[in-house]
Write a protein that binds this DNA or RNA. Structure first.
Lengths: 149, 149
DNA sequence: ATAATAACAGTAATTATTATCAATTTTTAT
DNA sequence: ATAAAAATTGATAATAATTACTGTTATTAT
């Protein structure tokens, strides 16, 4: 694999991702990089994200919300996708290669790895949901009180 | 969830998927259903695939090759994605909900499930690869022989 | 049988992403 | 330091997958 020629834009994209713990999409990255490089084009962002992912310097995450997300941290870990706010968060679990073994026993072919995403409700949405339930049941209590009165 | 009004097109799509073990994309499904319904439109295929998936009558698979695949079998099992021929095959492994438990211990939020895809080289591509290697080394032997002669 | 409405075909619009290309930036060789 | 070579860029066009819109047709309930 041939070395890449340096570019300020690519460096900025890499630094930007390294400084975040969320997992922005290409257009989010674009809108932020634009603050430092007002003339950068979206194509440049896409091209560099692909190059960096290809070389394993960042991770490309396809979690099924049909927009790729990118992760500046390449240490092995998994991801969680919130079905309410669509956010992607890290889940610090070591690589479970035992999963590959289980699959190998059932499959005729070469299993090289797996992609695993968890889904559900993130902490923030969970808290918000509970608050809404509370205020909803309070409303109901008031309604009942009015009817009874 | 309201009941759906019957439609021959939707029935045909469901039957088509039930009869296959591969996991076709919307446009593949479209091209086949067209043999029986020459006037069906691609939008109808997409709409019905979404409806059926929403109701759990089929599965929508997003395996990162940016075209959704569909599976007529909803019994719990996993999938394998061949990075060579991009085919998606079934992997009859029971649902490993132990994975969710491991994740729950490391995550503040509600984990409802996971999506897990295996990747590597499928049986067919693996065989083909070996054949090519063989014929390649034979070619080399011949070349060496010519040079030595 | 008829009215209400869900689903349809056809088509336009949207969204994410990739490709093209002349101009610029970075690297290499002098 | 300078010029030639090569990679990268910005701008824009093109593609691919999917969704939205609209007038017509099929299904269901009365």
């Amino acid at each position: 694999m041939k070395a890449l020629k340096y570019s300020r834009q690519r460096e900025a994209i890499k630094d930007f991702l390294a400084a975040r713990t969320d997992h922005p999409t290409a257009d989010i990255i674009y809108s932020h990089i634009r603050e430092d490089f007002p003339n950068i084009s979206l194509g440049t962002v896409y091209r560099n994200l692909s190059l960096l992912a290809e070389r394993g310097e960042i991770l490309k995450l396809s979690c099924g919300d049909n927009a790729d997300h990118f992760d500046g941290c390449t240490a092995p870990h998994y991801h969680f996708f919130c079905r309410k706010c669509q956010s992607v968060s890290d889940l610090e679990l070591p690589d479970m290669d035992i999963i590959n073994l289980a699959a190998s026993r059932k499959f005729c072919g070469k299993i090289e790895g797996h992609t695993l995403y968890f889904y559900g409700i993130c902490k923030a949405c969970n808290t918000r949901e509970k608050l809404e339930e509370e205020s909803f049941s309070q409303t109901n209590e008031n309604e009942n009180f009015s009817q009874n009165a």
